[in-house]
Design a protein around this nucleic acid. Structure first.
Length: 635
RNA sequence: GGGCCCGUGGCCUAGCAUGGAAAGGCGUCGGCCUCCGGAGCCGGAGUGCGAGAAAAACGCACGGAUAACCCGGGUUCAAAUCCCGGCGGGCCCGCCA
């Protein structure tokens, strides 16, 4: 059997058959054949949407129903309800097609190539190498990874990139801390170590700067400064409690010099590529990245490319080129030695707004490109980086970046326009996701306040292990199972909520083991595999009349999978996959409960049901892999 | 001050681009293992008082319970969905990233 999607074949047949009947009506929307709600069959056609009036809809529905019953052999039953034509597939005739495609595709089932595949770069995670990955990054990471996998399953050529933000003040802060405290030799995971250095330096320097500012401040300003100061003193206290030694060493060092001046010097020298600064900064950054890689490896997430900001934007002169181009655009002004890009002016153009999909009144502000001391700012380098991505051959660039950065992402695209890179601007997509918030506290890397990804994963695996023990499995022999289940729970939870929705973190939400969860899907999969194992030498086989009404829903759902992949990829909706998997798992669990598989009355029935079970197992497995969840063999 | 995102049963989450039957889960109550793995499956929707042997029905009281689209307008045959105006929560408007 050719083809990747039985569902597509089915829908095409239905559409062809009803062409004649609906040709007098103007159909303004994409698909007239939709999925039906539960208990209304498999597919549905809304006659009123086509006919536009009640009486016409009734007649039209009848005509459609007639045509479908007589002309589409894959359909088993058609009935009209409230102006809807509800359709049930013929479980056997349609099931054979689904079975053939699944049998051919096997571990690739779900692969559903786009007619025009593209070269796509997915940039995600891209955490600053100054602290460990925390829950927010984890949301980014898990979404980005799944997105890349899904786009590949849609036939696109995908490259994942991690942008290492090694240029900028934040890096210099961490480097300063490292310079002062390197001799301490802490025995902790390197990124956590760097995180402590970074937070301690931030606290020390902020207190230093605020005190200095306070001396020359007038009374009103003092009130504000005192407030900030007391907050940073509180942060300092927290950090002292975490690691007194680190904090003290950095605080002492800062008493004998101007720490901020030193930090700015590190920043300037690093950007200029001076050897001493490069050695210092790279040591810290690499320490942190070693830590990232450990976490990522555990998550089963890897990158095709690690792009060092310093290399791909600064030292190679690309950012200088960008600045030259922007100056020529006439949209750059100079103010006290700093360069400012008038993004707001460019955004006045209706045409550009439209092309970039900006809402009419979206407020755009100016963007400082270069500081008075000649160093560049993050968005400036980001413009260069975006160009760099296209230079490597990408048709499309997807940036998985927090929604807080929406304005910056738009400014970058406006800058591309100013540079005459309209195509690049239009093919740069900000895939925004909302923050993960902790109840009560505000997460902040600078303040050392975060729940790290490592802690979260440890806790998840620990809880999964406890569940295993409850079910009589020895933990010692099942560490890998606990790992898969724990991580599966976390990933599923992070993926099933739309990225546009803010996520209030809670252990219960992220570590769910009930329905609508990673473990639930894994469990259904394990059951299916277990049945197949028990079948021994009995092979799955589909013979005449193999599937009946009992199998209909599952046959339909399995056939629908490649459609979900296509939709998920084309609309960049990762959450469709976990939703689908939950639905299939639910349907299979029900089937498992109600219908005997190995004890079916005839050999043919047993083999047919094994075939169904195999299809479910393959689909669940492939679906889980699409979102980076590992299917366990037992649990 | 301007802008962006979010607001769906007690709680969490789909649905909104393309208007047309509001879908899952959690919780709660009650069932289902001589069966292939129970991390499962199926079903239900309140409480108190009165009279009464008891149940149903009934009456009274409280409640969101044939339980939900933040509120108010508008467009439409039709609005959770589109438009306008509010409200609530988050975020952004930096010579931070």
């Amino acid at each position: 059997m050719d083809g990747y999607s039985a569902h597509a074949i089915l829908v095409e047949k239905i559409s062809d058959a009803i062409q004649e009947v609906i040709k007098d009506h103007k159909v303004e929307y994409g698909s007239i054949v939709e999925r039906a709600p539960p208990d209304k069959g498999d597919l549905t056609i809304n006659a009123i949407r086509i006919a536009r009036s009640d009486e016409a809809a009734i007649k039209l529905a009848e005509k459609i129903a007639n045509v479908l019953t007589t002309r589409v052999d894959l359909i088993g039953k058609v009935y009209i309800e409230n102006n809807y034509v509800n359709i049930k597939v013929d479980p056997y005739k349609y099931g054979v097609i689904v079975w053939n495609i699944v049998s051919n595709q096997k571990e690739n089932y779900g692969f559903n190539p786009h007619p025009q595949p593209k070269n796509i770069i997915v940039e995600h995670t891209s955490a600053n190498p100054v602290h460990p990955l925390h829950i927010g990054h984890l949301r980014n990471c898990v979404i980005g990874d799944a997105l890349a996998r899904i786009l590949k399953a849609r036939g696109h050529k995908v490259n994942t990139h991690f942008y290492v933000d090694d240029v900028g003040l934040q890096m210099a802060y961490a480097a300063y801390g490292f310079e002062k405290a390197a001799m301490l030799q802490k025995d902790i995971k390197p990124d956590h170590y760097v995180g402590l250095l970074y937070a301690a330096t931030n606290a020390v320097v902020n207190v230093y700067l605020l005190r200095k500012e306070r001396e020359k401040a007038n009374p009103e300003e003092r009130a504000r400064i005192d407030k900030e100061l007391s907050e940073w003193l509180w942060v300092s206290k927290e950090l002292m409690e975490k690691d007194e030694e680190i904090f003290t060493v950095i605080a002492n060092a800062a008493m004998h010099e101007d720490p901020y001046a030193r930090i700015c010097d590190i920043n300037r020298a690093y950007e200029a590529g001076e050897e001493w600064a490069v050695a210092l900064v790279r040591r810290v950054a690499n320490l942190c990245i070693d830590g990232f890689k450990k976490t990522l490896e555990r998550l089963g997430i890897s990158f095709d490319s690690w792009d060092w900001e310093s290399e791909v934007t600064t030292w190679n002169g690309l950012v200088t080129e960008v600045l030259r181009g922007l100056r020529q655009s006439g949209l750059v002004i100079e103010k006290q030695g700093a360069l400012i890009f008038e993004a707001d002016k460019l955004a006045e153009s209706h045409e550009i707004r439209q092309k970039l999909g900006l809402p009419r009144n979206y407020g755009i502000s100016r963007l400082t490109l270069v500081r008075s001391d000649g160093t560049t700012l993050y968005p400036t380098r980001d413009i260069a980086y975006t160009l760099y991505k296209f230079q490597t051959g990408a048709d499309k660039v997807i940036n998985v970046v927090g929604a807080q950065q929406a304005l910056e992402q738009i400014q970058v695209r406006l800058a591309l326009y100013a540079l005459g890179k309209a195509k690049e601007a239009e093919n740069t997509i900000h895939f925004a996701y909302e923050m993960v918030t902790l109840p009560g506290v505000k997460m902040s890397g600078r303040r050392g306040r975060y729940v790290s990804a490592d802690e979260l994963l440890d806790e998840a695996v620990k809880r999964a292990g406890e569940e295993l023990v409850k079910r009589g499995l020895e933990l010692a022999e099942n560490r890998d199972v606990a790992e898969k289940v724990g991580l599966g729970a976390v990933k599923f939870a992070l993926l099933s909520i739309s990225p546009s929705r803010p996520l209030m973190f809670s252990w219960d939400k992220v570590l769910d083991f009930d329905k609508n969860s990673g473990p639930f899907v894994q469990y259904a999969y394990v059951r299916a595999r277990s049945v197949l194992r028990k079948a021994g030498s009995l092979k799955p086989l589909v013979t005449e009349g193999a599937f009946g009404e009992d199998e209909r829903k599952i046959v339909f759902l399995v056939g629908y999978f490649p459609e979900v992949v296509a939709k998920s990829a084309d609309e960049l909706k990762v959450e469709l996959i976990p939703q689908y998997l939950n639905e299939l798992a639910l349907a299979f669990n029900k089937y498992y409960d109600e219908v005997p598989i190995l004890k079916a009355e005839t050999l043919e029935k047993v083999q047919a049901r094994l075939a169904l079970t195999l299809m479910v197992a393959v689909t669940l497995e492939n679906g889980m892999k699409l979102i980076g969840i590992e299917p366990p063999h037992r649990m």
